[in-house]
Amino acid sequence: MNANGMTLNQPVKLTRNQKFWLRVRRNWILHLMMALPMFYYVLFEALPLYGLQIAFRDYSAADGIFDSAWIGLKHYIEFFSDWEWKNIVSNTVAISFYQICAGFPIPIILALVIHINQKKFLKKLTQNVAYIPHFISVIVMVGMLNQIFHPQFGVLAAIYHELGIYTVPDIRYMDTTFRHLYVWSGVWQNMGWSTIIYVAALTGVSHELHEAAKIDGASRWKRVLSVDLPAIMPTISIMLIMRFGSIMSVGYEKVYLMQKSTNIEVSEVISTYVYKVGIAGGRQSFGTAIGLLNSAINSAMVILVNKIAGWLTDGEAGLF
């Protein structure tokens, strides 16, 4: 019997429509499962897109979305005619790339180190301790930075004092040190966390492959290169794609807390600008417009990197 309950003596042609609904009926539980999430997506992700049009309007709360004057690209013209815009965009891109280059390989290396090392106690201790910084909120993080690098009372100062030098530079607020402080403190805070995923992926690597490599006489190091790394490539590429997806989103909070008059030239990024001028500054549609620009660039990056990852690994990896 075929699915319609009819015997095969009579070949029945189903219309496309009937086929469609047949499949729906067969999978109805799965569709039901998707219903709630889809409802959420429509309501809270798709619907706000409708309100996105205030980026092209001169939004005033009194007039509401639809009656606010349509001004097209005026907000973008304003942004690009501000002489600061090049600075802002270049800061954002530079910091993002720096973050990825510094922050992405380190958890992988760390995971490999933990995986290779044989001392059980050390491994457990490190794994459990390395995650702690992730739980520290951003305000606390910046407060700690300020205290540790304090030119008179910080740890750095104590080291200088030991060496007999009492004129300690205040590296917390210099424009030459801002990016390094920002990125490496972020690495410090997040490396233990990302390591979880990689360590877990490494322990999942098939044991047979390791055995085979050992039989071939590979040293531990060679085994890492030839067995472990390729095995976690799919994980790595997914994580990388997701990182790129937020390339233009240098989060405003930490930057804002670390900004001072001495480093503002290198620390002003799109998100702080949007926040200060747009949201807090009461210019809601301007803020939305620039935020949209930010979002668009992020999307382009994600799509691009996803295509590259798919192309490099023959369709194996890739988010979608």
Binding site: Y59, A61, A62, G64, I279, G282
Partner: peptide, 15 residues
């Protein structure tokens, strides 16, 4: 300051 300005701004935007 930035926080209450944001709160005020969103309240005004939402009438």
């Amino acid at each position: 300051a930035q926080d209450y300005k944001t709160q005020l701004s969103t309240m005004i935007a939402g009438n």
